[in-house]
Design a protein around this nucleic acid. Structure first.
Length: 640
DNA sequence: GTAGGGTTAG
């Protein structure tokens, strides 16, 4: 008995301790794996790697998690290195490495991904779908379809990837046709189709399909996703009524105890999307009404309504909500910084910026753009260097702001440095090129401006043309400006009112009265552009410079718009050139009415009298100025 | 740990 008991207990004791050890080890491994994936999820890749390196025992999941971490960061070389070092690769490792190559830009990577797919010891549905969606996302639908057709067993995911691919290429009809011939749809198929149609601007077609296929019972549980996409799509484009109609079609999620039974009902994203539609339409009252009616709000709900108040510059309400919200994230902070910066309150914007627990690139860009817009150029430059010191890499939004800063500072040296940074770090897009052209021409470097213009091979938008024509005009290069304008017209690029401001300015600088009149007329009759006060100012400038002062004042008296300070300023400048004191008094008088605090008209009149030797009159202008308590501003000299 | 779909900030 005792022997038997002893044997048994010894044996079971043995067994128990072995299995305990095994269990202990496996649960430790499991815990470490979980820690790795949590670290990766929160973006702490190097900590994950340190934990990975410290682990004595690893399994395939450990390796695969680490590989997927590198793939998410687009560090494919490191992912590949781990893949090669891995003692035993399973099918997930292979799928990961294939998807890693396909998610990198460039055909070299895609070919490598395909090569890895072909090397796979075995393949499952995921492997095939990875390749199909990889090709589809890179616009290679020929290859995607080739693999789709060659696949031994397809599932819905395969077809959904094809739909997404068609829609990324803008092939709306192919996508819809493919969807209709699919053997089975699931909620993701419908959602992929709807969101692709929305991206292609086919909102009403999307609504039709949603109503036609959305009533199938088996997908009611996820139908709300498709509705949300379409609500947001209508909202983004300002069709708030259509958005609201869809929102009202979804059964309400508030009150009532039958939540479990009703599968198709509003969720937080439906409410957020509807609020966003109102915010986009500038209807903060309706957005707020929805916000107050919501039962469950998430961070995005708060952010949406806060951004609504920021948009209408109601910073009291925006910051009140910001203080009330439970857990503000980077977006909430960025909205508040945007709001204060837009309202010219740079100090508060900076205060909030410095208090942020986490900053991202957008935080920096927001503040730098705010400084630029408020013309605190030195502050913007300080922030830009601070940003780089703190290891944040500027993107094209940053650089675009900083180029405008150089324009504001008229700092050609800094401008050239930024230009070099642009060439090294980003693919310059239209806004970047346009601000480079403006920067160079403001800094007097018209040759560099036209070099930027000439280097744009692919696409010049109308703003690019305007910037270049305006640059030539302000440098007095009327022939170049007009030549470019003619080229633009030959290329069928439709000029805007800004183009004509530049063209008229060019005529003014070159003394081309008839050409100026002709262009002004052509603007109205050939292009249907309503003349603005700036155009009249240019025309007055054109006439005035050539001494046609009577024609100029007649134009001012008969123009259909109220002449502003640019119009009267042009006349006053012309009077000075041609020594017409009588008319100068009229112009100066009008300018003083518009801007009583400005000293410029007084100084100009004073100098004119002085030039003519009429010192008594000059003195009376100075006395008048003193009486009206106008201070002479820097930059205006008593001496002409 | 791998393939397809939804909302917010510059």
């Amino acid at each position: 008995m005792a022997t038997l008991y002893g044997r048994l207990s010894r044996r079971s004791c043995c067994l128990t301790s072995a299995s305990l050890t095994r269990n202990y080890n496996s649960s430790r491994l499991h815990q470490s794996n979980k820690n790795i994936s949590n670290l990766i999820r929160s973006g702490r890749l190097s900590e994950a790697r340190a934990l990975f390196d410290s682990m004595k025992h690893r399994n395939a999941v450990t390796w695969n998690s680490m590989i997927s971490g590198y793939i998410h960061r687009r560090e494919i070389a490191k992912a590949r290195q781990l893949f090669d070092e891995m003692p035993q690769r399973d099918i997930v490792s292979w799928n990961l490495i294939v998807s890693g190559y396909f998610s990198c830009r460039g055909s070299r990577f895609i070919e490598e991904g395909r090569k890895m797919f072909e090397l796979m010891p075995q393949r499952d549905c995921v492997s095939w779908n990875t390749v199909i969606s990889g090709y589809a996302k890179n616009g290679r639908m020929d290859q995607a379809l080739k693999f789709f057709n060659a696949m031994p067993e397809r599932n819905v995911v395969s077809s959904n990837a094809v739909i997404t691919g068609f829609l990324l290429n803008g092939d709306v009809d192919l996508a819809v046709g493919f969807f209709k011939t699919m053997p089975e749809h699931d909620s993701a198929s419908l959602c992929a189709l709807i969101s692709g149609l929305v991206r292609n601007g086919e909102l009403d077609m999307a609504a039709g399909i949603l109503h036609e296929f959305g009533s199938d019972d088996d997908r009611k549980d996820d139908l709300v996703h498709a509705y949300n996409t379409l609500i947001a799509g209508y909202g983004q484009r300002g069709h708030v009524e259509e958005a609201r109609r869809l929102f009202d079609e979804i059964p309400d999620d508030r009150g009532g105890g039958d939540k479990g039974q009703r599968r198709f009902r509003r969720n937080v994203i439906s409410w957020n999307s509807m609020m966003m539609s109102y915010v986009k339409a500038g209807d903060i009252v309706s957005a707020r009404e929805l916000f107050d009616r919501m039962v469950e709000r998430d961070t995005c709900s708060w952010n949406t309504v806060i951004s609504g108040y920021v948009q209408i510059s109601n910073m009291d309400e925006a910051s009140k909500l910001f203080r009330e919200m439970p857990s503000p994230d980077v977006l909430s902070w960025n909205s508040i910084v945007t709001g204060f910066a837009q309202n010219g309150n740079l100090n508060l914007a900076k205060d909030f910026f410095e208090k942020m627990p986490h900053k991202n690139l957008i935080s920096w860009n927001t503040l730098i753009a705010g400084y630029e817009k408020n013309e605190d150029y030195k502050g913007a430059v300080r922030l830009f260097s601070q940003m780089q010191l703190e290891g944040e890499r500027p993107d094209k939004h940053t650089l675009s702001s900083v180029i405008s800063v150089c324009t504001g500072l008229v700092d050609l040296y800094l401008g050239k440095q930024i230009h070099q940074l642009v060439t090294k770090t980003v693919l310059p897009d239209s806004p970047i090129n346009n601000s480079l052209i403006t920067m160079y021409s403001r800094c007097g470097a018209i040759v560099d401006a036209s070099a930027v213009f000439d280097e744009i091979k692919l696409y010049k938008d109308v703003i690019t043309w305007n910037a270049m024509i305006g640059g030539y005009a302000s440098h007095g290069l009327a022939a170049e400006a007009l030549e470019l304008f003619n080229l633009m017209k030959r290329l069928k690029i439709h000029p805007t009112y800004i183009t004509f401001i530049a063209v008229l300015n060019a005529c003014a600088h070159a003394g081309l009265v008839e050409e100026g009149r002709r262009q002004f007329k052509s603007m109205v009759t050939d292009y249907g552009i309503e003349p603005r006060v700036e155009h009249f100012a240019s025309l007055v400038d054109i006439l005035g410079r050539q001494g046609q002062l009577k024609e100029a004042i007649h134009l001012i008296n008969t123009m259909p718009l109220k002449p502003d300070k640019a119009v009267w300023g042009a006349l006053l400048g012309a009077c000075r050139i041609h020594n017409n004191v009588q008319l100068a008094i009229v112009a100066a008088d009008a300018l003083i009415r518009l801007e009583p605090e400005s000293s410029a008209p007084y100084v100009l009149l004073y100098n004119m009298y002085a030039n003519l030797g009429q010192w008594d009159d000059a003195e009376s202008v100075r006395v008048l100025m003193e009486e009206k308590n106008v201070k002479k501003q820097a930059g205006y000299s008593w001496v002409d």
